[in-house]
């Protein structure tokens, strides 16, 4: 589904990603862990098409298409969804209205008729129930005055409505209470399926108890330094990241 090859990305002249390789197949769930500032959000943002990043070399292929040549909205239409680490507030713009515009823009690309208000509300209500989002959030302005946890839950709600093929979750678990974590996990697990893939950035092993990953990657020094299964996350929790970096350094030297 997603193939990233030798990706180099700089921000204001500073190289953040230095030859990153990652392949995510349909049906898989990948967890990305790594120290603060390692470039995890950078990776997710570059896949989603956020501006401000300079891609100096490498390629990102999604469903056999050159993702880097597509506009952010084209990527969204093609099924890429980013749950933001810091969801932005948009005063005066109704939460449901934005979502409806997004859904219908995507449907238009697929030559489907726009959903009318009634059909759309049906879907919205169902998904709001799934992620236990209070209906009052539907009519509020996008993220305005939402608590940190409410913003994250709103992201998962939007994901549930948009039903993406590739979901990028950037620290969606951070700032969630235990119940919210369970609910968010429920939303994500519901999305899991043979033709979908999930990449989730997290700092906490705990999330992986709820959403079982197929792979756990360590992103540090601008690369995927180590890949393992769920047990790697446990080991990281115990030992931190230094040993991974040292190991990588060792193997580089021995080459």
């Amino acid at each position: 589904m997603l193939v990233i090859k030798d990706l180099h990305v700089s921000v204001v002249g500073k190289e953040i990603l230095k030859g990153l390789n990652l392949t995510i197949l349909a049906g898989e769930v990948h967890a990305i862990m790594g120290p603060n500032g390692a470039g995890k959000s950078t990776l997710a943002n570059v896949i989603a098409g956020r501006g401000g990043y300079e891609i100096t070399s490498g390629s990102v292929t999604y469903k056999n298409k050159d993702l880097l040549a597509m506009l952010p909205e084209e990527r969204a239409w093609a099924g890429v969804f980013l749950a933001f680490q810091y969801p932005v507030e948009i005063p005066g713009v109704n939460n449901t209205y934005l979502l409806k515009a997004g859904v219908n823009a995507k449907r238009k690309q697929q030559d489907l008729d726009a959903l009318d208000a009634i059909d759309f509300m049906k879907i919205v209500k169902e998904k709001a129930k799934l992620v236990e989002l209070d209906p009052s959030f539907l009519s509020r302005s996008v993220n305005e005055g939402f608590s940190g946890g409410e913003k994250k839950r709103n992201e998962i709600f939007q994901m549930a409505v948009l039903e993406p093929s590739l979901a990028l979750l950037d620290e969606t678990d951070s700032g969630l209470d235990i119940d919210a974590l369970r609910v968010v996990a429920k939303g994500v697990n519901k999305l899991r399926g043979e033709d979908r893939a999930i990449m989730m950035v997290t700092h906490y092993q705990r999330l992986l108890d709820y959403i079982e990953p197929d792979f756990v990657h360590v992103l540090a020094n601008g690369k995927i330094l180590k890949t393992g299964d769920k047990s790697l996350a446990l080991e990281l929790e115990e030992r931190g990241y230094d040993w991974v970096k040292a190991e990588a350094l060792g193997s580089e030297k021995s080459v």
Binding site: A48, P72, E73, A76, L98, L99, A105, K106
Partner: peptide, 20 residues
Amino acid sequence: FYCQQRGLSEEDAVNMIVNG
């Protein structure tokens, strides 16, 4: 970018934000 990520064109995103 948030609006575009949800599927709005840049122009529609500007309009939506301005109208808000």
